[in-house]
């Protein structure tokens, strides 16, 4: 056991760090893009704050196309774009770009779902007090759906965690990459198992953290 850690401890630690950096960074960027997109999508929906069929339809297409491309294909297909953004298509930065592009439409969709759950009566009440649409977005839609948004963020995070395993393809490292390389290519089941266990534990921790946070801020 001690020998195992001497040999692979540093490797697994580096893998954990790479995975977390990729996941956290792409999660943040995915929200930077996906949150406004999701709000816009919800606001322009039929029966939304400012319905706009044309805008809503186009947004819907973009979001659905984005969500339907398999990640491994996206990863390769956008290599030129990735180079343009971060100067390289390799390593952790090279993985964060495709992860962000893959997750942003997903984020937009779950944000829209969370906002759509807000009771229409509350929006009407806010209108009756003379709220502007911008005030309703911030003070009613986002505020009232915060627990649901947090749950969505936890799901996004876990999904990205899983996707990041494939980032090994571009040499970004991470736990998934270790599991694949040591398990399938070198037949070192113990290293693979250790990497997989770490993945499972981390996912559990972050999902529980998300659930706990959502529960503790939900006053319903």
């Amino acid at each position: 056991m001690a020998e195992f850690f001497d040999n692979y401890g540093a490797l697994l630690a580096q893998g954990t760090i790479d995975t977390l950096v990729m996941t956290i960074a792409s999660c943040i960027f995915a929200y930077v893009i996906g949150l406004p997109l999701g709000i816009w999508f919800a606001v322009t929906a039929p029966g939304g704050l400012k319905p706009n069929t044309a805008v809503n339809t186009v947004l819907g297409w973009i979001i659905n196309i984005g969500r339907s491309i398999p990640f491994i294909i996206l990863l390769v297909a956008i290599i030129p774009f990735t180079r343009l953004v971060v100067g390289t298509s390799l390593g952790v930065p090279g993985a964060v770009v495709p992860l962000t592009v893959a997750a942003a439409p997903f984020v937009a969709r779950i944000v829209e779902q969370s906002l759509a759950e807000v009771d229409k009566d509350l929006i009407e009440a806010a209108h009756s007090f003379g709220s502007s649409n911008a005030q309703i977005v911030v003070k009613v839609l986002l505020k009232e759906s915060l627990p649901s948004l947090v749950r969505g963020a936890a799901i996004t995070f876990v999904n990205l965690f899983g996707y990041s395993a494939m980032a090994g393809t571009v040499g970004a490292g991470g736990l998934g990459d270790i599991a694949i390389r040591y398990g399938y290519q070198r037949f070192q089941g113990d290293v693979m198992l250790a990497a997989v266990i770490l993945c499972v534990v981390l996912v559990q921790v972050f999902q529980s953290l998300g659930d706990w946070l959502a529960r503790s801020i939900d006053k319903r």
Partner: peptide
């Protein structure tokens, strides 16, 4: 103009419409 008018008229509702997270 419309928002100020609305702000000057109070309203209450059948299902109260209180903000749950406030």
């Amino acid at each position: 103009e419309l928002r100020e008018l609305r702000a000057s008229i109070g309203m209450i509702f059948q299902n109260f419409s209180l903000f749950q997270q406030r």
